[in-house]
Amino acid sequence: MTITVSPVYLFNAVTNEAESAELWDGITEKQLGDWEGEWLPELFKSVQKLHRAGVERRHWPQSRHWNWRKKTEALQGMLAQPGFSIVCNGMTQGMMILDTVMKRCRIEQQKGKEIVYVDFVENAPWNRPDLHDPALYRGVGSVMINAAIAQSKELEFKGRIGLHSLPQANSFYANTCGMSDLGMDANYQNLRYFEMTSEQAEAFIAKGTQP
């Protein structure tokens, strides 16, 4: 498996400075090792804190059930579902899997057209403001959305992307990314569906990567 590494930046909230990072166009054994050895223990600690604080289960991070090893193994070598990851300071900070074939646009002006659908995207637990105060790195989500837009353009889909958002991320997709909120999807666990037009993609890129 050949991996292309592109330079990106994340914002380190501890040093208050931008930090060099890498966007990998793949999810390798390194990422899966980081997920199992670092992400999961941290995630379980966060869930334990929420439990002990009496926070209702429905407010716990829903991505706690995701098994990146199984997902990655199932999609190994599949052109339709490429994976991406961000590495900073030697540690995996985010992972994403796209679907470039199975979904179509829903917004009226682009209905039925090809789209890059963000199937799974997750930030390392220490970068999530809802789990870690202060979050260590900001900008992982924006770098991933940028990567999804770039993939969409590379496939001539003109930057069109779509995704179902977990409740904790609704505001990020609506406000930071400027995606259209098409409301709760009864056919997809009642999660909100967000879609980005080519114009919205251009506006997002013009803003630059922002946390």
Binding site: A80, V101, E114
Partner: peptide, 15 residues
């Protein structure tokens, strides 16, 4: 483009 359609077809076929 023709290239984009053929690449999309390949992804779908493989899947």
């Amino acid at each position: 483009s023709k290239t984009a359609v053929m690449r999309q077809a390949l992804r779908l076929y493989q899947l």
